[in-house]
Design a protein around this nucleic acid. Structure first.
Length: 947
RNA sequence: GCCCGGGUGGCGGAAUUGGUAGACGCAGCAGACUCAAAAUCUGCCGUUCGCAAGAAUGUGCUGGUUCGAUUCCAGUCCCGGGCACCA
């Protein structure tokens, strides 16, 4: 049979669509299984071969589970709000709604081409008002809730108001120590005006508005969340980011820090993923303690994880932005302090990170050690960050390397409290040392002293046990257009939520996306929209991660107009059993969606508090770039205008190059070769297709000349990120066109483990294609036509089948799709060798193959005369009976070199093994009449004889 | 600097967790069919020695545990990823 994949694939894709073959019901007697892909951001560039890797893996797994008798939810949608679409609109004048729609249609076409089993009736788009109505609704729930630290869960804000009315802040102290009110009783609360009450409540709300240092990106005209800033520049576009104090919306994710940390223990994520998350949360245990400032009424509070080193404190360091700095600086130090602060301000985050120079100045003030009364100089330095702890540290140079370097640099004397653990050359952060020079904790081991000191601090009322987190609340507003509007209006400086009946707050049509005044977003330019019900609408929009924080719930009940997702639907589908996506969302999306899930769980809206049971990170497929080497210039001979290209290995062969480029002119030996990206699609392996190259880019190099090696032009190779500008992208459509979707799917899997990153290489795709053709030949022949028959299979044939069933089941279950593909190849080779064309065998094989290569499986299923669809077949069970057979075993001589083979049956008893082994000639000879102490039947192949 | 991964033929990668290392595929070589090409099929294919049978050696490197190590332990060198003035 000729393998006419184009016709076959078109035919079945059409058929599946018409018969709604992938529709998933919400009610079923079957057990459920939820397989989810991270939904794509529909960029203009379309899909390249890297994107479908995860989708193919999840598709295979979803189809496999379906065959195994599960009701499988496998949906797809689009993360369609966000910065790039808006940036594109500004650059090209195309409205984001239009370009997004175009991109989605393009994505869809590419996805359909590969034959995925998505239930498209459940598609979601985060930019669709029917969807973001519920994003806004969940925002309202967050706004109207607080985190009850006693019960450790979110509760309605009404509970808090009732508590205030009854007992003031007694049960729920104000969490923000910077707030102008620190506590109040019930009569005070009842006497407050509306604005004060609302300001207080704002300190508790899980979605809140506040002023804070934010990551401001001037080029993008918006703030960014911490995880959207990488190395001091924006993740998207790489623009500089600065700190700015602005009014912003936040998500109080810090309240969930502990539960997010604990939740990691219950989920099946990779170790590195868990670690990235717990590093981001950054929990550390220690103490806050207060130092009196000499000759001043104020106290200086620091956070430390090592209170045991209190007697080793030789100086204090404040962040330059610390509020005490201006009060405590002495008259003679005032100028240097001011200059230093100005210097720090002038430096971008980026410069600061890049340089890492030791800088700082003395303030002129002294702190007093609470235990021995020692006066300690107070410095300021940029290595102390305002945002962490209290923005101030006690420096212990003998125990902390940064403090040590600082002390050395500024010649501050160092106190040694750890005896010979401290070398004087570098700090030693040990906890094992026995303390010296340490007052009441002298002679104690450091580890043990930690608690002793904290207890003492608490007893004296100058400190307390304290847990600190690196994670901050997440900035939740963007000064942008293409996002969800906030369902909030402002009146007299108070934010009021809109009523649920007013949702969705639709994003108004706006053609000019220029920013509004005072760093506000484009919506600020629409007065008729902005003014609403006697107030002013919030003109910021929500960030890209808003919709993606809960989209997996909407798939369960996508048409519901009354609820974001009915409790019945979410109880049926429950957690995502398998989530597949890249590692780049480790601390963003994954953390936010975990928080939203916990929040919805707290309110009783869903029944589970972790969204994903198992997470698999697919590796990145990098591009494999090809280079040609152009001979560009010669300092002595002037510009070389004609394009000359030299083959990779001859780049430094001056003789040959001189001959071609300079002819025989003397002294003309200077040249430079510069590498130039060349389209990978006109290179066969490393050999350049010279004709195609001459036609490339409208004949830009039509008159090029080449220096060849062995008649070929060999290109240079480098692995880089796949990108259009590097001409190393491979479009899946081209490969599907040439080899078919089934070949493409199997080849992507065959490349290697799903989790592994690897450069794309099209070379081996022929092998997979050949396998599929060979597989078809088991069914029918080009010349003879139909060759399959209904004869009864032999034991040897059944053995091949059952071995394959077992292996495919194992491979698929453990996500080893690459060995799965190999297993099919082996089975096909073996059946070909056996000349087996028996329906009973082939039919079962088709079922196994259908998750990997659905189109051809369906086609052959029908050619065998089977009714219905292979999609609804039952995954066959393997039978051990057929696997029992003879197998080789090797008794191993312990001190000799003897090794021999014995043929044993797999299902024999220990006693039989021993008999056979002892009868073996080589073993007998080796034993020389002695009795073996022990014969161990190690595995099914090896036998261990101990004498 | 710290924390995770990972080093296996010319290449991508197997080895079901301590039991014949290199499955399967690509590339290569030789051959069959063919006027020829394509397609297909067969054989060989880590390294060294050998005409061969075969022998020795071999999973980054150095040791250790074990009858037996790609697998476990210690040390070391590379490569990839993450975090990084977090007190």
């Amino acid at each position: 049979m000729e393998y006419r994949f184009r016709d076959i694939e078109k035919k079945w894709q059409q058929h599946w669509k018409e018969t709604n073959a992938y529709k998933v019901p919400n009610e079923s007697s079957k057990p459920k299984f939820y397989v989810l892909d991270m939904f794509p951001y529909p960029s203009g560039a379309g899909l390249h071969v890297g994107h479908p890797l995860g989708y193919i893996a999840s598709d295979i797994y979803a189809r496999f589970k379906r065959l195994k008798g599960y009701n499988v939810l496998h949906p797809m949608g689009y993360d369609a709000f966000g910065l790039p679409a808006e940036q594109y609109a500004i650059d090209h004048g195309i409205h984001p709604a239009v370009s997004t729609e175009d991109n989605i249609n393009n994505f869809r076409k590419q996805l359909d081409n590969i034959g995925f089993c998505f239930d498209w009736d459940r598609e979601v788009r985060t930019c669709d008002p029917k969807f973001y109505k519920w994003t806004q609704w969940i925002f309202l729930q967050l706004f109207n809730s607080f985190f009850n630290r006693q019960s450790k869960k979110a509760e309605k804000i009404g509970v808090l108001i009732a508590a205030f009315e009854k007992a003031g802040t007694a049960e729920h102290p104000i969490p923000n120590s910077q707030f102008r009110i620190s506590s109040f009783c019930k009569t005070e609360w009842n006497s407050y005006d509306e604005k004060t009450k609302q300001d207080i409540l704002m300190q508790y709300r899980l979605a809140y508005c506040g002023y804070g240092e934010v990551n401001w990106c001037e080029a993008l005209g918006t703030v960014l969340a911490n995880d959207e800033v990488v190395n001091g520049v924006s993740e998207r576009g790489g623009h500089p980011v600065e700190k700015k104090k602005l009014r912003q919306w936040y998500l109080r994710i810090t309240e969930y820090a502990d539960r997010l940390l604990e939740g990691l223990e219950a989920v099946d994520f990779s170790e590195s993923m868990k670690e990235m998350q717990s590093n981001w949360i950054g929990k550390s245990f220690g103490a806050n303690l207060k130092f009196q400032i000499a000759n001043f009424p104020s106290q200086l509070e620091v956070f430390t994880t090592r209170p045991d080193t209190i007697f080793g404190v030789d100086f204090m360091v404040l962040a330059p932005e610390h509020e005490l700095v201006n009060q405590i600086k002495s008259a003679e130090q005032a100028k240097v302090v001011d200059d230093y602060i100005a210097f720090v301000k002038s430096r971008s985050e980026r410069e600061r990170m890049a340089e890492k120079k030791i800088t700082g100045v003395f303030t002129g003030a002294y702190a007093v050690n609470p235990f021995d009364g020692r006066e300690i100089p107070i410095w300021i330095s940029e290595y102390v960050l305002v945002g962490y702890g209290t923005g101030a540290i006690m420096a212990v140079p003998c125990g902390d390397q940064r403090d040590f370097l600082f002390a050395k640099y500024f010649n501050i004397p160092i106190t040694n409290i750890i005896g010979n653990h401290y070398s004087g050359e570098e700090a030693n952060a040990t906890k094992e040392a026995i303390l010296e020079n340490s007052g009441f904790i002298n002679g104690m081991r450091m580890k043990d002293a930690i608690d002793v000191v904290i207890n003492k601090l608490e007893e004296l009322g100058i400190g307390e046990r304290k847990v600190n987190y690196k994670m901050h609340d997440a900035a939740f507003s963007r000064q942008r257009y293409w996002g969800e509007p906030f369902p909030v209006i402002w009146k007299d400086g108070v934010a009021y939520p809109l009523d649920e009946s007013e949702l969705p707050v639709e994003l108004p049509q706006l053609d000019d996306l220029k920013p509004g005044p005072d760093g506000e977003g484009p919506l600020s330019n629409l007065p008729e929209w902005k003014n609403y019900k006697g107030g002013i609408r919030e003109v910021n929009t929500m960030p890209g991660y808003a919709g993606s924080s809960w989209y997996f719930l909407r798939y369960m009940d996508p048409q519901n107009e009354k609820e974001f997702c009915s409790r019945k639907a979410s109880d049926y589908w429950g957690q995502v059993d398998l989530y597949i996506g890249g590692t780049e969302h480790a601390v963003g999306h994954l953390l936010y969606s975990r928080m939203w899930t916990k929040f919805l769980y707290d309110l009783g809206l869903i029944g589970h508090d972790e969204p994903y049971k198992k997470l698999v990170n697919q590796g990145m497929i990098q591009g494999s770039s090809r280079f040609v080497y152009r001979i560009t210039s010669s300092s002595e001979e002037g510009e070389i205008t004609k394009p000359f290209f030299v083959s990779y290995n001859l780049r430094s062969d001056a003789e040959i190059i001189r001959k071609l480029v300079f002819g025989n002119r003397a002294g003309a030996l200077m040249y430079v070769t510069s590498p130039l990206h060349v389209d990978v699609n006109i290179v066969d392996g490393v050999e350049l297709n010279i004709e195609a190259f001459k036609n490339w880019r409208n004949g830009e190099y039509a008159d090029a000349e080449f220096i060849l090696e062995e008649g070929k032009y060999i290109c240079g190779v480098e692995t880089e990120k796949m990108s259009k500008s590097k001409f190393n992208t491979v479009n899946p459509n081209d490969l599907v066109e040439k080899y078919g979707a089934d070949t493409f799917r199997m080849y992507e899997m065959f490349l290697g483990p799903v989790e592994m990153s690897k450069p794309w290489d099209t070379k081996g795709i022929e092998g997979v294609h050949r396998f599929l053709r060979k597989f078809c030949r088991l069914f029918s022949d080009e010349i003879k036509g139909k060759v399959w028959n209904e004869e009864k299979p032999t034991d040897a044939e059944l053995k091949v089948l059952h071995k394959t069933i077992k292996k495919i089941e194992e491979d698929t279950e453990r996500f080893s799709f690459n060995t799965g593909v190999s297993t099919f190849m082996i089975a096909t080779n073996e059946l070909t060798d056996l000349k087996c064309h028996k329906k009973e065998i082939l039919e079962k094989l088709l079922i196994l193959l259908s998750p990997y290569a659905p189109h051809i499986s369906e086609e052959l299923w029908h050619r065998l005369g089977n009714p219905g669809s292979v999609l609804d077949a039952v995954f066959p069970k393997w039978n051990e009976k057929y696997l029992k057979e003879t197998s080789k075993a090797y008794p191993v001589a312990i001190n000799g070199k003897t090794r021999t083979e014995i043929t044993l049956s797999l299902d024999i008893t220990q006693q039989q093994v021993e008999e056979i082994v002892l009868q073996n000639e080589v073993v007998r000879k080796w034993l020389e009449g002695k009795q073996p102490k022990k014969i161990i039947y190690v595995k099914n192949k090896m036998i261990n004889v101990v004498v």
